[in-house]
């Protein structure tokens, strides 16, 4: 598998260390090019397999993981869980072709806080990454819909249902987005800035992850990724 390491010994401090996982070579090269061009970060490696990515994750501090979900030797969520357990402050973003909502929500539960379509333009990618690093997460109507459905579902014990973990404001945001409102319309309705909406969304994603953690921990230990 072709892979390239961009690790540099003299990196400027405060620069976001990025790891990319994408098994399709042209796409990997494209994303690598776009991320390299991003002045705010430093691409540590662009991996084609999960095994390779795990080596990099365990080898050094990673602040942002951009990963495909379907990998030849595993699943992107496994890398996300490992990242989140090694560095709780790190962010993970998934790239998918069709933004299959259920898959994306499962990635969010594993710890992802952002997502991107594979045909995203360079400006979209950079915008998405910067937003994520600034503590804001995107949400689409269809993803909000999937999460709303999950609000009253019994979670894996011993957590209370997700609906209990979320604040009333967060639930309002979910419902608004699920109904098809834009951030601006929602901000107007709730009397908040439209910039605040993605901040709430990130909080929602984090709760979704926490709500699912016991299962995630179990899953990770089962797969031998995590030593308990």
């Amino acid at each position: 598998m072709p892979s390239s390491s961009f690790a540099a010994s003299a990196e400027p401090p405060g620069l976001c260390r990025v790891l990319l996982i994408e098994d399709d070579a042209p796409l990997r090269e494209r994303f690598a090019r776009l991320l390299q061009a991003w002045p705010g970060g430093q691409l540590v490696a662009a991996c084609a397999t999960l095994a390779e990515a795990i080596r990099h994750l365990q080898g050094g501090q990673i602040d942002l993981l951009v990963t495909d979900l379907k990998l030849p030797d595993g699943h992107g969520t496994q890398a996300i869980r490992l990242l989140r357990s090694l560095n709780p402050d790190a962010d993970a973003m998934v790239i998918s072709v069709l933004a299959d909502d259920e898959t994306v929500v499962r990635a969010i539960e594993a710890g992802a806080a952002g997502y991107l379509l594979k045909d995203a333009d360079s400006f979209e990618l950079v915008e998405a990454v910067e937003e994520l690093r600034a503590g804001r997460s995107p949400i689409s109507s269809s993803i909000a819909r999937v999460i709303v459905r999950r609000l009253n579902e019994p979670p894996p014990l011993p957590q209370p249902p997700l609906g209990k973990a979320l604040t009333p404001r967060e639930i309002e945001i979910l419902w608004g987005i699920a109904k098809g409102l834009t951030y601006a319309e929602l901000g107007e309705q709730l009397g908040i800035s439209k910039q605040t909406v993605p901040v709430h969304v990130k909080s929602i994603y984090r709760k979704l992850e926490a709500n699912n953690r016991s299962e995630a921990v179990f899953e990770a230990s089962r797969r031998g990724l995590l030593k308990l």
Partner: peptide
């Protein structure tokens, strides 16, 4: 859920038109 379909389309359209 027609609203969801419209919103999803809107999001895609927005980035297309922006381009």
């Amino acid at each position: 859920e027609l609203g969801v379909a419209l919103a999803t389309y809107r999001d895609r359209l927005a980035s297309q038109l922006k381009r």
